[in-house]
Design a protein around this nucleic acid. Structure first.
Lengths: 181, 181
DNA sequence: CACCGTTCTGTACGGTCGTACAGAACGACG
DNA sequence: CGTCGTTCTGTACGACCGTACAGAACGGTG
């Protein structure tokens, strides 16, 4: 490496373009050629840096990984405290939330041991945490509604400042969560 | 047509299998061969009945079409009345909601004039109706949260009876919708 | 029986995808 | 200068997709 300017590195430029394209079109719908042309390279150049395509997604998800396990393993006094932490997590990593929730853990096609397996487990764990043990049908619906509201709202409002989204989303999600009336 | 038993017709069996597979894996991720093997045919047999693959999606969406335009064109006294009608629509057609919301109107790749164009317009129209004219950022977030909660909750709880989902979802969505506090 | 439309099979084609591989360009280092 | 590792290009391959087309099977109709 000649001079490893972290901002203008080719790898970083590929990662940035991939993050944006994945957020817009989804993982499977974005080809290496799409990413390559966005950076001004050929698809083989992209494949050189990220050998299996999965590595691109893995490297994008990586910074969120420790936040994910912290979120799952932590104990919270309150369900509302958990929801607040969940909202904070989702908003902070909103540029890759679609990648995490839809694309990687999308179908059942993921072979056991693949990253998709872990992501799906994470999503189900979030839902279980929201729904509580032995949830009634209405509780299941409510929990999935909360998960869906988090994902959708955060993906669609990437142009808004983080704090605005966080505040409005926390209000909406906790209202939906406590709608047992 | 020999005897057009509507239940055991091959076309209907293909449609049923396609509806289920589309709901599980999504439109693009389901190949004609997948559908064919689910029905016990070859992919060319499926292609014979539904010449472009789009026709499969179109025929599945068709029964929801008139409900869609009725929903968009109707005037409602109340925002809550609109939300209630929206929840009813979403729950009634929950087996194809994913097809409508994600797959057809998913990327920007849809050429103008395609069905994806209309679906995306429908989704944006729903959001605009929920967000109101000239929405502030928080209103936009809230509206997308409602849309996301509807879609996600309905897709994930296909095993629950329709009325249970409708009731719980209406409560959650209207709580999120009115969370301007 | 001859004819025909419907339904389905088998084969093949063009396109796109991710991947593999050989080699060119080029600065670093001895 | 020669050699090396890094970075990127060009080409090609195999897999998969949707689609097109010729023909077999078969019941209905003349």
């Amino acid at each position: 490496m000649t001079t490893l300017e972290p901002g203008y590195d080719t790898r970083s430029r590929i990662l940035d373009a991939a993050r944006q394209l994945f957020a817009e079109r989804g993982y499977a719908a974005t080809s290496l050629a799409d990413i390559a042309s966005a950076v001004g390279l050929t698809k083989t150049a992209v494949a050189y840096h990220f050998h299996p395509k999965d590595r691109l997604a893995a490297e994008l998800i990586a910074p969120a990984a420790q936040d994910i396990i912290a979120l799952i393993e932590s104990e919270f006094d309150d369900e509302h405290a958990f929801l607040e932490a969940l909202v904070t997590f989702v908003v902070r990593h909103r540029t890759i939330i679609r990648l995490i929730m839809e694309d990687i853990g999308g179908a059942d096609s993921a072979p056991p041991g693949s990253p998709g397996e872990a992501i799906r487990a994470f999503r189900d764990c979030i839902h279980a945490r929201l729904a509580g043990p032995d949830p009634d049908p209405a509780g299941r619906v409510r929990a999935w509604a909360v998960v869906g509201s988090l994902q959708y709202a955060v993906v669609k409002t990437g142009d808004l400042p983080e704090e605005v989204v966080r505040e409005a989303l926390l209000a909406a999600a906790s209202a939906a969560y406590g709608s047992s009336a």
